[in-house]
């Protein structure tokens, strides 16, 4: 079996073991794994199941329930564009469509060169400063196509420098 990119089974076991004494450890474990590897590999399921004394189906059920957990690595940069009603009232749907079309991307897709993943998000709590987004975890707001493109291009350029 070919190991998934960047996945380290031994390190994963160490992370899982760190949460052995925690009540309701599942989400903290999944967050820690995704924090370390950028996604939760299929291989993690049996290890977590054994550690928490659950079936593999139960673990798979949890991972697939939550929007945050990825099954494969994301792009090097992450853009989460808000689709909440407050952002829609300021034209976020049209903005998103134009931005995605300009980059030949759809929601949840990663660019061909692996540089950018775009996900929708339903509210960032920036509802008085719409439209808003999180770019690599940092908030940006009062966006239009020009300022969004500029911010994303800046982030992409930094990585190359």
């Amino acid at each position: 079996m070919v190991e998934a990119p960047g996945w380290d089974a031994r390190r994963a076991r160490e992370i899982i073991a760190e949460f052995s004494g925690v009540e309701g450890a599942m989400l903290p474990i999944l967050h820690a794994l995704q924090g370390e590897f950028g996604y939760v590999a299929e291989d993690a399921t049996p290890v977590i199941a054994e550690a928490l004394n659950l079936s593999r189906a139960e673990v798979h059920g949890v991972i697939s329930f939550y929007h945050d957990f990825r099954h494969a690595p994301a792009g090097r940069h992450s853009l989460k564009l808000c689709r909440g009603e407050a952002c829609q009232s300021m034209g976020s749907e049209a903005l998103a469509q134009k931005f995605l079309a300009g980059r030949s991307l759809g929601w949840h897709e990663t660019s061909a060169d692996g540089s950018l993943t775009v996900d929708p998000v339903y509210c960032l709590g920036l509802c008085s400063s719409s439209p808003a987004a999180l770019l690599d975890g940092e908030p940006i707001a009062r966006l239009d196509l020009a300022s969004l493109d500029e911010a994303v291009d800046e982030a992409l350029a930094e990585a190359q420098a």
């Binding site: 909440g84 009603e85 407050a86 952002c87 339903y122 509210c123 709590g125 920036l126 509802c127 008085s128």
Partner: peptide
């Protein structure tokens, strides 16, 4: 606090 339009929390 998931409701769009809220940010008080």
């Amino acid at each position: 606090e998931g409701d769009s339009g809220t940010f008080a929390d």
